[in-house]
Amino acid sequence: MVTRRNFLDRLLALGFVSTAVSILYPVWRYIIPPAAAEPATDSVIAGKIAEFKPNTGALVKFGTKPAILVRTSDGQFKAFNAVCTHLECTVQYKAETSQIWCACHNGLYDLSGSVVSGPPPRPLEVFKVNLRGEPGQEDVVISRA
C-alpha cells in the first residue's frame, strides 16, 4: 500500500536521481577528450609525410580557411593561405608548371607565393611547414609564420 507520503518520497527520490544523472552525464561527457584534441588556431596537422608525393599540392583546412600544402619536385614542403588575393577563390597547384594557380581569373603564383601573372594584387600569405615525429612517419604540420 503506497501512502501519499510514501509516494511523495519516492517521487522526490526519482527526481533527485534523474536530475543528478542529467547533471553528471553531461559533465562526464564533457571531461572525455574530444576527437580533435585542441583548437586548430595557429597550426594544423596536414597528414603523414608519405601522403604527399613530390610535385603535388593538397588543400588542407586551416581554421575556417583553406591552406595549400605543396611538395616540390625536390621533396621540400611549402604552405600558403589558399585564398587568392584577387577575389578570394581557392587556388590550386599546377604540376605542369610547378606554380600555384587560381582558376577563376588565371592568377599565377610562384612557389614563394609571389604573383607571377594575372590579376592578384598581393602575394599569398606564407605559412610555415614543420615535420614532427619518427623519421618516415612524420606529421606534416602547417603553422602561421
Binding site: K61, T64, K65, E88, C89, T90, A103, C104, H105
Partner: peptide
Amino acid sequence: QSLALREAANQLTL
C-alpha cells in the same frame, strides 16, 4: 561547411 561555401562562391566567380 564554411569551406564548402567558399567553393560554391568560387563556382559563382567561375
